[in-house]
Amino acid sequence: MTEKPVEELTYEEAVKELEGIIQSLEGNSGALEDMIRLFERGQVLGKHCLNLLDKAELRIQTLANPDVYGETVL
């Protein structure tokens, strides 16, 4: 698994990864060390998500107006 720094993840990406981590933890395979590492990353992901929710502010961008006819409309 190539891991992006958590701070760079969007909410959707972070939640998706968190879900994946829980799944593999529940699968309960792999080395203890991996398990602990996964758990720690899961915790960081969860905190990041909470942080995003707390700080979320709607961002609005605007596309250019289409120049459909090249003429003004009444």
């Binding site: 929710l53 979320a56 961008q61 605007t62 596309l63 107006n65 289409p66 459909v68 006819y69 409309v73």
Partner: peptide, 21 residues
Amino acid sequence: YPLVEVLLAPAAVQGVSAPAE
């Protein structure tokens, strides 16, 4: 859901140029 980002594509929604826009 303030997490979302909005991309507004403005268009006339009535009048003759509306459909094309």
